[in-house]
């Protein structure tokens, strides 16, 4: 028991250290600065953006002031993408907690 109890904090530290190497932004924290909701485009319009990416759409939803899309890429990768609700620009894409795309100049 002693070995296990002594080694698990080490393991915890190792897991967290590995994690620290990845970008540490929570998906729920993405801010799109989209302004008032009346000016947003319909979320269904995102379907075209997703089609242009050649992704398979799984789910669309409003997350904070962003549109969030869950999809599979052509290669079968699972992605979570955030789009601007007014311009429908692709702002940031995560793959299993790792940021794999960020629009130029986007800091949200």
């Amino acid at each position: 028991m002693r070995t296990t109890l002594k080694s698990w904090p080490l393991l915890a530290a190792a897991v967290l250290c590995v994690g620290m190497g990845s970008p540490a932004s929570a998906d729920g924290d993405v801010k799109c600065n989209a302004g008032p909701q009346e000016k947003w485009q319909k979320i269904s319009k995102l379907k075209k953006q997703v089609w242009l990416e050649e992704w398979k759409l799984l789910k669309m939803q409003v997350q904070g002031d962003c549109y969030e899309v869950y999809a599979h890429t052509k290669q079968g990768q699972s992605v979570e993408a955030f789009f601007h609700p007014v311009t429908l620009e692709k702002l940031v894409v995560f793959r299993r907690g790792q940021e794999i795309f960020r629009a130029k100049g986007f800091k949200g």
């Binding site: 296990t4 540490a24 929570a26």
Partner: peptide
Amino acid sequence: YPAFILAIGHWLLIGWDW
């Protein structure tokens, strides 16, 4: 114990929700 810690790590790394 390691399973639990790894599962917590898995959760943190997926969503970064501390």
